[in-house]
Design a protein around this nucleic acid. Sequence first.
DNA 1: TATGAATGAGACTTCATTCAT
DNA 2: GATGAATGAAGTCTCATTCAT
Lengths: 198, 198, 198, 198
Amino acid sequence: MAIRQTLKERKRLKIIRTACRLFAQRGYYNTTMPDIAHALDMSVGNLYNYFESKEDLAKEIMLTVSQWVGERLKKVNELEMDFKEKIRLLVRSFFEIALEEPELINYFLRVFLVNREIFKEGCEGFACVASVVTEIMVLLSDGIEKGAFRDQSFFPAFTTIMGPLGGMVFLNNEGVLEKPLMEYVDEVAENIWGALKA
Amino acid sequence: MAIRQTLKERKRLKIIRTACRLFAQRGYYNTTMPDIAHALDMSVGNLYNYFESKEDLAKEIMLTVSQWVGERLKKVNELEMDFKEKIRLLVRSFFEIALEEPELINYFLRVFLVNREIFKEGCEGFACVASVVTEIMVLLSDGIEKGAFRDQSFFPAFTTIMGPLGGMVFLNNEGVLEKPLMEYVDEVAENIWGALKA
Amino acid sequence: MAIRQTLKERKRLKIIRTACRLFAQRGYYNTTMPDIAHALDMSVGNLYNYFESKEDLAKEIMLTVSQWVGERLKKVNELEMDFKEKIRLLVRSFFEIALEEPELINYFLRVFLVNREIFKEGCEGFACVASVVTEIMVLLSDGIEKGAFRDQSFFPAFTTIMGPLGGMVFLNNEGVLEKPLMEYVDEVAENIWGALKA
Amino acid sequence: MAIRQTLKERKRLKIIRTACRLFAQRGYYNTTMPDIAHALDMSVGNLYNYFESKEDLAKEIMLTVSQWVGERLKKVNELEMDFKEKIRLLVRSFFEIALEEPELINYFLRVFLVNREIFKEGCEGFACVASVVTEIMVLLSDGIEKGAFRDQSFFPAFTTIMGPLGGMVFLNNEGVLEKPLMEYVDEVAENIWGALKA
DNA sequence: TATGAATGAGACTTCATTCAT
DNA sequence: GATGAATGAAGTCTCATTCAT
């Protein structure tokens, strides 16, 4: 039954969307399976027809979300422009995602980064977020190859990009920023560019 | 009376140390009050003579830890050296703390940053981590005033420093770094300096 | 119509066979209706076209299995031979069934004897296992009538036969016997004969 | 705190007694932890201060019950009398236990024999019922040594004793016996004696 | 101060059964 | 006849917190 399969897949995605939002808002341990079922207007039992366990659900969300964000970043990567401009666009895109679909970035910040125990098995070596990591990797090696960035180890460069991005979104969520998030794009981009440029 | 007070205060600190370590290792929700009591070889009931609740304990830990880390950073701030060197020393100090007393930094990463719900009340505007934030603030305004750093808003600059530092420690905890953490000091410091310098 | 009926009946028997095996292996409460459906490569819903409920299925299995075993025992009863030999043949046959079709005997041991609550209604007075009980009854009254067995009440004699038989099969299942089950035939038969003989 | 320990041990035994009774009456899977807690007038949570899990409780019951029954049988073993009489006394004692403390024997019949999955780990080789098995073993080897019993393998002899005993108690529970259980003592003893005697 | 047994709400998960397709 | 998604009650177990001793 191809149709049935499609319907089931669509529902799966709906569950992922909703659970992602709840987890991102309240945290993993403060979101119960009944909460999720209720938000989806379905029964708890049925939830378990789609995901084996709460942990399994969390992992599947991470995989899916990482792919979504990865695709957004990929589009930036594929544009032809100088790297300073590309960094600025990357920052802008990341902040846009954080504002338009806050559950995506916040899921990273509130579930993935924190509740490491959940992702111990099945996400070894950051397999769950490979899509995003890959894009940053592409950006960096491209930039180094073309002489725009200093040659350096991957991890410092990676945290130099993702650290400030995640940090700013976090502070924005906490409501401590003085200006709207988007108004920090230039400053953040300037910092990252200064940090990486050759 | 005074002696008794001192003894009580000493025990309080011991609880804070131990609980901080457990929370940092296992996460807030995976550490139970009996766990903490057991690790301290004391009774659960007695724990409640020192802290009103688990949340209260978590907040007190954050305050104390922030002070400890803040003091370490203050020492760096007080040294007379050029800012490029100061940044490098800051990075080195941060990584040293992360290796020598991993529970301190990891408490930030695993409890404070993640379980925001716990710190909603009583830590408004990052009151709980004021000691650390203040030192970074001092460093930045000093640097800007003396013309070493570009003039910019506080928050982008703050995340430019703390983002990579936290990120590298996180990756080190996850065991994904290729080299020992301390070998990244120069690269990370170089990036931060490049990002901030005038 | 007749053909359809036959097909349905055949499927019924297949369900009984499979469910009997699963119940015997895992126990009644550890075997789910989806488990059974899956093993049969059919849908859960369809299972309910053949049996009203899980309990109903369990009872129907017991009836059928009892008939199968009863028929085997009947063949022994119908042979002309002295009773000492007949007892030996009974033991041998019982052990053979236990080895060739372990689900039959094990269903007795693991479901019927244990989960009495299931058989409360609909199996009054051991109606569900009448076929087997009857054959033992026939054997005993025959033996007593012909002077081979001491005259005694039915129930002690019944447990004297079935107790050791069930017990040996149970121990064999548990893997604690030192020799293959069939090598105990003579000793068990000797005991039963000693117990019953005139 | 020796007193506290004693109190706790006493409560442990009370839980074992009560849970044993409930399991024996309703079966393992039809008795819930809340049922047990309610019967003891205590909270579910507290139950878990005494036993790690429902399975653990079931195993501890089996160990304790086996010891109690084993001690009763040991007394029979220690008496000086001829073996025919000893068998009769064994049967009588077993039936007495079954009538006076039905939960003990029924626990064997309804939980241990049936729900094998529970005892897979921790009761290897019938460790949980060693006390009872040992006494039967002593009786048999004694009898064989003294020339009262035929020399034979342990397991057939064991099931020749325990099979009819368990069987009669089972039938008595089911209410199908025509006479009170105790009136079958002589017939059952006669059978067992006939089966085993030299 | 110190103890730890006791509480009880609430978490995750299972599963017999139904029913629209 | 056949399907399998959906239901929801019920089960096991956890844990922050209290309180009599």
